[in-house]
Design a protein around this nucleic acid. Structure first.
Length: 338
DNA sequence: AAGACGGGGTT
DNA sequence: AACCCAGTCTT
């Protein structure tokens, strides 16, 4: 075993957090946790993990749920294609893998929503197979330990770090090794101010001795944010609210919203028949949304779309809503959607 | 190779 | 306001 792997595993043994999915080898639970944790902080994911485990006892149960039920439980977590793919993958496990979660990397990797990271995580954590995980934590630890300036957000760079991770992997204890390197990245080798004093790798880390840690890892970067204006027309009474389902593309696919007109120009005929309520600013990674809400007092006077349906307020909790819609309903009408 | 896809915490 | 989080999929 390499010095690197030995040190991080000793450290992990003494410093690991107790997390719900670390108590199990159940591939369903491991898979669920890994999908939830994609681009998501551990703290944010814990409640969702517990909700899903409780709601869907096994993969068969999950596969028999509706997509809407799954999205409803996913509500508020973001990146909703994860929820839709989770559901699709459950059906695939049941129908194409004979309700037997796949046991080798290549088969696990075939499930929708499971990429190289997640397949390696499941293969190692559930079956102790020798596949090295490379996530955001690992990029940070490796780029600093080797003072590597390869970009982490290009295909070449990713191949480079995957090869590095593969070499370093303790093939006798891949599960423990993988957990250790990620935990080190999460707790010690942090993005801004890493805690190098308490790092088990000490001075064998090149970025520490060369004092380059603040520059690593390197990204090509450049995300551009576009501004977008959403105008929602709210029809609501004592019993019902008018909602429509969003499409397959775009943000919030297959989730529900009020009748929508997008853009900064609203038909004057429409404006005559509505009452401005409020504006909420909602930031996504690639979009800054200005969301205007208008009350429609006389629904017959206005026609915005034809696919909207009246939903009873009691059933509202069964409809997956974007955060900003949920927030509006809570603030304006004290309606809780779940 | 680049863009799309959420929501929230940290600095 | 910028950056990042147990990334993946589409174009």
């Amino acid at each position: 075993m390499s010095h690197f792997s030995e040190q991080i595993q000793i450290w992990y043994h003494n410093n690991r957090r107790d997390l719900p999915w670390r108590e199990t080898k159940n591939p369903y639970h491991i898979w669920l946790s890994e999908v939830i944790l994609q681009q998501t902080r551990v703290q944010q994911g814990i409640d969702y993990y517990n909700k899903f485990v409780h709601a869907f006892e096994d993969i068969k149960t999950l596969s028999n749920a509706s997509e809407q039920e799954v999205l409803n439980l996913w509500q508020g977590l973001g990146y909703y294609s994860r929820g839709r793919n989770l559901h699709k993958a459950a059906k695939m496990v049941v129908h194409e893998f004979q309700n037997q979660f796949p046991r080798i990397f290549d088969d696990i990797r075939k499930l929708p929503g499971v990429g190289n990271y997640t397949a390696a995580a499941i293969a190692s954590f559930a079956y102790n197979l020798p596949h090295a995980v490379v996530d955001g934590n690992v990029y940070r630890v490796l780029s600093r330990y080797f003072n590597a300036d390869e970009f982490i957000d290009t295909p070449q760079g990713q191949k480079y770090y995957q090869a590095l991770a593969d070499e370093l992997l303790d093939r006798q204890n891949p599960a423990n090794h993988n957990q250790a390197i990620m935990e080190l990245g999460a707790l010690v080798c942090t993005p801004k101010i890493p805690n190098c004093q308490n790092c088990p790798l000490g001075d064998t880390c090149e970025a520490k001795s060369k004092k380059t840690w603040s520059e690593l890892p390197r990204k090509k970067g450049k995300i551009k944010v576009r501004a977008r204006q959403l105008n929602y027309f709210v029809s609501i009474n004592k019993q019902n609210v008018l909602l429509q389902k969003r499409g397959e593309k775009d943000i919030w696919a297959n989730m529900f919203e009020f009748p929508l007109v997008e853009g900064d120009e609203i038909d004057s005929q429409i404006l005559k028949n509505v009452r401005f309520l409020k504006t909420l600013n909602h930031k996504l990674t690639h979009q800054n949304l200005t969301v205007n809400f208008y009350a429609v007092d006389n629904v017959d006077e206005i026609s915005i779309n034809h696919s909207a349906e009246w939903i009873s307020l009691d059933a509202l909790k069964d409809y997956p809503l974007p955060r900003v819609i949920e927030r509006f309903l809570a603030e304006e009408y004290e309606l809780i959607s779940r």
